[in-house]
Design a protein around this nucleic acid. Structure first.
Ligand code: MN
Ligand code: MN
Ligand code: ZN
Ligand code: ZN
Lengths: 139, 139
DNA sequence: ATAAAGAATGCAACTTTGTTGCAAAAGCAT
DNA sequence: ATGCTTTTGCAACAAAGTTGCATTCTTTAT
């Protein structure tokens, strides 16, 4: 599993660079969603802040990571499961949980967002569900 | 309905100031959720930016407005329906919709977020559901 | 293995967004 | 009207995000 990062990059037709591999490693090693800031703290000495912005943007567009909305002005990112992009948008459909105690945000991969029926005239493209509370570790 | 803003402030035990009334008016006049930026554009000449930050914070704490998470680093705010705060947290439970076309975010007040069953050990406090796509106006 | 083309990175400069302390002003209760 | 309390504006700052451009690194073709 040494070259799992490279694998992902090649599958997405991205060139393999030290920065991209490092950021992928950080995601692979971490069990929870990461904000730009979290990543920067782990590799700011190696890589420029701008590179991290651009890398996350690229990963998003390629469907390598998805972003998780929040009300605290800290968008978080997590690895997508399989190839996540079809017709230009992500199709992650699992619930996210943010713990008020430890602050961590995790993907509840097995918990599928229930279907809803939008009012007449609305068309759905993506759907996000974020639950906050206390996680099982902090309980 | 001239003093609807004042009414809201008094019900929340807040002193009635020009800035707070103005910001409430902006919300009452607008059909959709507003980001700090939207509000600032409408009253930056009258009021300081800092005042807007503090006013939104106060309104949130008092349950006058609720915030809507997003993946674009622009938290939006909308008026709460009734008195929204019980035991320290909001209990808005409706779906939000963000239009990819016009960019507007609206409360779908009649669309209740379906219940979900969290994995063992997790406790829910708040829940948010945001759907993106095309709204009925842009359709 | 080398060279050329294209893509990614670092850096600098900048803009925007959000925070804090404090003095002045405004609101509220008596 | 007076004094007390809360809110506001200002200034200074910190953090977050963006952009253009020159340099470096990857990839692809020779
Ligand atoms: Mn996820
Ligand atoms: Mn709402
Ligand atoms: Zn926790
Ligand atoms: Zn629209």
């Amino acid at each position: 599993m040494k070259k799992q990062g490279e694998e992902i990059l090649k599958n997405s037709a991205l060139s393999v660079t030290a920065g991209r591999k490092r950021i992928l490693d950080i995601f692979l090693a971490s069990g929870n969603a990461l904000a730009h800031q979290d990543i920067e703290m782990q590799c700011a000495e190696q890589f420029d802040r701008v590179t991290i912005y651009r890398t996350l943007q690229t990963f998003l567009e390629k469907g390598i990571i998805h972003n998780i909305p929040s009300t605290d002005n800290m968008v978080r990112y997590a690895l997508c499961n399989d190839n996540c992009i079809t017709s230009g948008h992500h199709h992650d459909n699992h619930v996210h949980f943010k713990c008020d105690d430890c602050g961590k945000t995790v993907c509840l991969d097995d918990l599928v967002i229930p279907a809803i029926k939008l009012p007449q005239g609305y068309t759905m493209k993506e759907i996000n569900m974020v639950v906050s509370g206390v996680c099982k570790t902090c309980k």
